[in-house]
Computed example of a mutant assay.
Amino acid sequence: MKVVGFAGYSGSGKTTLVERLIPALKLMGLRVSVVKHAHHEFDIDHPGKDTFRHRQAGAFEVIVASDRRLALMREFERPARMNVHHLLAELYDGVDWVLVEGFKDSNLSKMEVWRASAGMPARYPDDDFVVAIATDSPGALPQPTLRPVLDLNDPDGIARWLADNGHRFDYDPEMYT
Rank of each mutant, 00 (worst) to 15 (best):
L162G: 06
A163Y: 11
D164T: 07
H40K: 11
R81P: 00
M120T: 12
A118V: 08
T135F: 08
V4K: 00
E19C: 04
S117P: 01
F129G: 08
V130K: 00
R20V: 01
R69F: 11
A65G: 11
W161G: 06
G58Q: 12
A7L: 04
R160K: 14
P144Y: 02
R81G: 04
D164V: 03
M111V: 14
P79C: 00
G8P: 00
T177L: 11
T177N: 09
K26V: 11
P155M: 09
V100E: 02
L87S: 05
Y92M: 02
K14F: 01
V4C: 11
N83P: 02
F42C: 03
K14L: 03
L146E: 15
E61H: 05
L150C: 08
Y9R: 11
S12G: 13
K110P: 05
T177Y: 09
K49E: 07
A38E: 06
E19T: 15
F52L: 02
F42Q: 03
E19M: 04
L30P: 00
L17A: 08
D96Q: 12
M82H: 10
H86W: 04
H39K: 11
N165C: 09
Y176W: 11
H37E: 07
R20D: 09
H39P: 03
G8N: 02
V149H: 09
R53S: 10
A65S: 15
G166E: 14
V98M: 03
G157H: 01
S66M: 08
R20M: 06
L146F: 01
G29V: 07
K110I: 02
R123G: 00
R168H: 13
M82E: 14
G139A: 15
F129C: 12
E61I: 06
R20K: 15
R69V: 01
G157N: 02
N165S: 12
I22E: 05
D170K: 13
D50I: 09
L146W: 02
D126H: 13
R81H: 13
P125C: 06
D127W: 07
A159D: 07
D45N: 13
D172M: 08
D156G: 08
M73D: 00
R78L: 06
D170M: 10
P155F: 03
V131W: 01
A122H: 00
P121I: 03
T15M: 04
D93S: 14
A159I: 06
N107V: 02
S106A: 15
I44C: 06
P148G: 10
W114Y: 12
M1R: 03
D50Q: 10
A140V: 05
R74Q: 14
A24R: 02
A24L: 07
A163W: 09
H46T: 13
G58V: 09
V113T: 05
L152I: 07
Y92C: 05
G102A: 07
R123F: 06
S137N: 15
A118F: 01
I44K: 10
L152F: 12
